[in-house]
């Protein structure tokens, strides 16, 4: 019951989706589009599960006063503020529980959810990703030390592509474009084809029930 029914669901659904690709007649096409809609709804709940799990883990850390627990209070508060702002006054395109939130939008310039997104979230996201530029530079310094022909190739290709994206002259942009169009595409294509074959093999193993690690233990 706990394992057999999920395995049967996987098998049945997987076969149905595959069959529908080869039988373009009713009810197969409708069934697949219906399944894709179901998938989206369940995935939506999965996102909510992830958020609630984050809240739960933070609440446990705060409750047991684990090391640096004060910072987790900040995370939970930010989460609560964003949710309250979103649900009470809505977002740019959506009305909230208190309506369109025109009064508060006039007061602060935009809806609270959008204000938080534009003035806090966007800055944090851009800065968090931009800080990686420094770490990439230090990682490059360590990993780009030419030890073998392979590492020299990696080093040269990376430098040429980087120079091609700067204003160092059109010669570098031509070389960069050539690298991206030909040898890079060749390597990427090999990866894509082999990864595609890997996905097909894994999918077959999942549908036939050979691979069942997604069911977890027990």
């Amino acid at each position: 019951m706990k394992r057999r029914i999920p395995l049967l669901i996987t098998f049945f659904v997987g076969i149905l989706v595959i069959l529908s690709e080869f039988i373009p007649h009713k009810p197969f096409g409708l069934l697949t589009s219906g399944l894709e809609d179901w998938f989206m709804i369940i995935a939506g709940f999965a996102i909510i599960l992830g958020n609630l799990n984050l809240l739960k883990m933070n609440a446990i850390k705060i409750k047991h006063k684990q090391e640096n627990w004060q910072y987790y209070v900040v995370a939970v508060s930010s989460f609560a503020i964003m949710i309250l702002a979103g649900f009470l006054w809505g977002t740019k395109d959506q009305a909230g529980l208190l309506g369109q939130g025109e009064a508060v939008a006039t007061f602060i310039g935009s809806k609270p959810f959008d204000w938080l997104f534009n003035n806090a979230y966007e800055h944090l996201a851009a800065t968090m990703f931009s800080i990686l530029a420094f770490f990439i530079a230090s990682a490059a310094y360590r990993s780009f030390v030419g030890r073998s022909p392979e590492s020299y190739l990696l080093l040269i290709a990376a430098i040429l592509v980087m120079l091609g994206n700067t204003g160092f002259g059109s010669i570098f942009s031509h070389i960069s474009a050539f690298i991206m169009k030909y040898p890079n595409t060749g390597g990427q294509r090999a990866i894509i084809i082999c990864a595609g074959l890997g996905v097909i093999g894994s999918s077959l193993r999942i549908i036939t029930g050979i691979e069942r690690s997604y069911l977890g233990g027990e």
Partner: peptide, 28 residues
């Protein structure tokens, strides 16, 4: 496990056919 199995089954079915088409046949 029930919703996960439905998601995994759908992903595996779609992955098998579409990856064969887009990532293997079209790239080759």
């Amino acid at each position: 496990r029930y919703p996960i199995s439905l998601m995994i089954g759908t992903t595996a079915g779609i992955g098998m056919v579409r990856y064969l088409s887009s990532d293997v046949i079209k790239q080759a």
